[in-house]
Amino acid sequence: MKASFESYTADKNLILKIKGDLIGDESGPRLVELVSDGLQEGIQTCIVDLSQVRYISSSGIGVLITILTKMRNTGGEVYLSSPSEHVKKLLIITKLNNIFHVFDSLEEAINQSK
């Protein structure tokens, strides 16, 4: 299942809700573009809601790292929220849980960004 996503802003946070498989297909560049646009609008934090992501490929990981790099280069931060057990294991195996701030819920991530 290809990834689809919606984005919105709340309290200077860019929220990206991703559904399906994050495999870095055409959705990857579009997600990065949304982050670039958000930065131009003064976004400080990007919260990626992974609650409906079943699978992340190495390209999908690349997309997340690109987003993180863009945000941190401008003093921003990226939070990952609500990863499934499978995605959580992937974050641990790849040691990305040491690079990203991971939260169990979207609310927790939003509260942390204030």
Results as ranks from 00 to 15, higher is better:
residue 56 I to N: 08
residue 78 V to T: 11
residue 52 Q to D: 07
residue 104 D to E: 15
residue 48 V to P: 02
residue 29 P to V: 03
residue 13 N to Q: 06
residue 92 I to V: 14
residue 80 L to C: 06
residue 114 K to I: 15
residue 14 L to E: 01
residue 22 L to N: 06
residue 22 L to C: 09
residue 100 F to N: 00
residue 28 G to K: 07
residue 56 I to Y: 07
residue 56 I to T: 00
residue 74 T to I: 05
residue 91 L to C: 06
residue 59 S to P: 00
residue 4 S to T: 09
residue 100 F to H: 07
residue 80 L to E: 05
residue 33 E to M: 11
residue 22 L to Y: 02
residue 84 S to T: 15
residue 53 V to S: 02
residue 13 N to R: 12
residue 57 S to V: 03
residue 21 D to W: 03
residue 2 K to M: 08
residue 62 G to L: 04
residue 12 K to D: 08
residue 29 P to H: 00
residue 27 S to I: 11
residue 85 E to W: 12
residue 32 V to G: 01
residue 30 R to Q: 15
residue 68 L to C: 06
residue 90 L to V: 14
residue 2 K to Y: 06
residue 11 D to V: 04
residue 35 V to K: 03
residue 78 V to A: 04
residue 81 S to W: 00
residue 89 K to Y: 10
residue 71 M to T: 00
residue 39 L to V: 08
residue 96 L to Q: 13
residue 47 I to Y: 01
residue 83 P to M: 11
residue 84 S to C: 08
residue 21 D to E: 12
residue 61 I to C: 05
residue 72 R to Q: 15
residue 10 A to D: 14
residue 65 I to Y: 05
residue 10 A to I: 14
residue 84 S to K: 14
residue 25 D to A: 14
residue 8 Y to A: 07
residue 62 G to R: 00
residue 69 T to V: 09
residue 13 N to D: 03
residue 53 V to Y: 03
residue 57 S to F: 01
residue 59 S to M: 13
residue 106 L to S: 07
residue 81 S to P: 05
residue 62 G to T: 03
residue 26 E to N: 11
residue 49 D to H: 02
residue 15 I to C: 09
residue 79 Y to K: 10
residue 26 E to D: 15
residue 6 E to A: 08
residue 82 S to A: 15
residue 102 V to C: 07
residue 71 M to K: 09
residue 106 L to G: 11
residue 21 D to Q: 01
residue 58 S to A: 09
residue 111 N to E: 13
residue 92 I to G: 00
residue 49 D to W: 01
residue 91 L to H: 13
residue 26 E to G: 12
residue 74 T to G: 01
residue 70 K to H: 10
residue 86 H to W: 13
residue 35 V to M: 00
residue 48 V to H: 02
residue 111 N to P: 08
residue 16 L to R: 08
residue 36 S to V: 13
residue 101 H to N: 15
residue 4 S to F: 05
residue 58 S to H: 04
residue 71 M to P: 08
residue 89 K to G: 13
residue 49 D to N: 09
residue 15 I to E: 02
residue 60 G to P: 00
residue 88 K to I: 15
residue 31 L to V: 06
residue 88 K to D: 14
residue 20 G to C: 01
residue 75 G to R: 07
residue 91 L to W: 10
residue 16 L to Y: 09
residue 114 K to A: 15
residue 61 I to Q: 04
residue 47 I to W: 01
residue 29 P to Y: 02
residue 57 S to Y: 03
residue 67 I to E: 00
residue 90 L to C: 09
residue 97 N to F: 10
residue 53 V to F: 03
residue 109 A to P: 02
residue 19 K to M: 13
residue 54 R to N: 13
residue 107 E to R: 12
residue 61 I to H: 01
residue 22 L to S: 01
residue 67 I to M: 02
residue 23 I to V: 14
residue 41 E to R: 12
residue 13 N to K: 04
residue 41 E to G: 14
residue 74 T to Y: 04
residue 19 K to W: 08
residue 19 K to R: 13
residue 37 D to G: 08
residue 87 V to R: 04
residue 98 N to F: 10
residue 76 G to C: 01
residue 70 K to P: 04
residue 27 S to F: 09
residue 43 I to H: 08
residue 8 Y to V: 02
residue 111 N to D: 13
residue 84 S to Q: 14
